[in-house]
């Protein structure tokens, strides 16, 4: 049996409370098992994500806009994957915003809170190439994301602004590609991961911008003693996120779209090779926004994974 390769990729809004659509239309929150699962292997993932910001950017520079004191979100999600064969894995993921909150500086002391289920994603992953000698694997997946409600969310009969909505309220598509290379002797692994998301137009005429995320992961095993039931892996992820413009009734929204580069150090603890706990921090290295939008500041995630052979 091939060892389950578990690394965390979270395709979450950059900052859920982003102003003027800097979040890419609340894309599906999720994580990924890199590579395919073995036949009859079930992987269960649960995660928590927290994001915080207190600044606006215009272009790649901080803006003087001081409308928001701070913005944050708390998000939890789950992913279930099952290996139907050694080459085909079916995945389903969904998430829930515990809160997406803006704390206003103007008017001072007020806040606005959104919450609720995000879009769900069902996708099929196929292993296109696998060389067990060279330890190279290439897989691709395609999926459909769909909302739990087509209606925009209202709180106390007041419709939430679109950057506060928990889901896109419409269907969308996701295409992903994975390239994995392992070095057994050095304990090093290299991953390339790409994810493209396209969104449909919802009932209110909003079409959130498409997004393209590219990640490079480099990992190294830290503990390799057979006596100790826990093994550790340190991972460094460099991630680029490109968000397209949002359209409102087919008119592009000027204050939408962004280009970002993140550095995400991560530690993964595998307990008896069956149960994984991961901790991850997202640090923005470079950010560019069209017009004024709330910029990312810091976020962190905790991920639990359990693999079962059925």
């Amino acid at each position: 049996m091939r060892k389950l390769i578990f690394f965390v990729f979270l395709a979450l809004p950059s900052i859920a409370s982003a102003q003027c659509f800097s979040s890419a239309g609340n894309p599906v929150g999720g994580s990924n098992n890199m590579g395919n699962l073995d036949k009859r292997t079930l992987s269960l993932v649960a995660f928590y994500h927290n994001s915080y910001s207190d600044r606006f950017f215009e272009g790649d520079k901080p803006s003087s806009i001081s409308l928001i004191d701070k913005a944050r979100y708390n998000f939890m999600g789950a992913l279930m994957a099952y290996g139907f064969s050694d080459r085909f894995t079916l995945e389903a993921e969904a998430g829930y915003f515990i809160d997406k909150t803006k704390f206003y500086a103007i008017p001072e002391g007020y806040s606005l809170k959104g919450f609720g289920l995000t879009n769900a994603l069902v996708s099929g992953k196929y292993q296109i190439y696998y060389n067990p000698v060279k330890k190279i694997e290439f897989a691709a997946s395609a999926g459909l994301k769909f909302p739990f409600s087509l209606k925009s969310m209202e709180v106390n009969h007041v419709r939430l602004p679109f950057d506060m909505q928990p889901s896109t309220s419409t269907i969308g598509g996701v295409i992903q590609a994975y390239l994995i290379k392992q070095h057994s002797l050095t304990g090093m692994r290299y991953f390339l991961f790409s994810r493209f998301e396209a969104n449909g137009t919802n009932r209110d005429g909003y079409r959130f911008g498409n997004s393209l995320v590219n990640s490079v992961f480099v990992s190294k095993h830290l503990i390799r003693t057979s006596m100790w039931p826990i093994s550790g892996t340190v991972i460094l992820q460099v991630r680029n996120e490109i968000r397209g413009q949002t359209f409102i009734r087919e008119i592009p929204e000027p204050a939408s779209g962004s280009f970002k580069l993140f550095l995400s150090p991560q530690i993964n603890l595998a307990i008896r090779e069956k149960f994984n706990v991961s901790f991850m921090v997202d640090l923005p290295v470079y950010q560019y926004y069209r017009n004024a939008q709330i910029a990312d500041k810091i976020s962190f995630s905790i991920v639990l994974n359990k693999a079962l052979e059925l």
């Binding site: 102003q19 003027c20 659509f21 606006f56 806009i65 409308l67 206003y104 103007i106 008017p107 007020y110 606005l112 709180v155 106390n156 009969h157 007041v158 419709r159 602004p161 929204e253 000027p254 204050a255 939408s256 017009n291 004024a292 939008q293």
Partner: peptide, 15 residues
């Protein structure tokens, strides 16, 4: 839009 009921506050965000 902040608040609820017969009176609310409109916040002019940059967009």
């Amino acid at each position: 839009l902040i608040g609820s009921g017969p009176e609310i506050i409109f916040v002019a965000t940059p967009c």
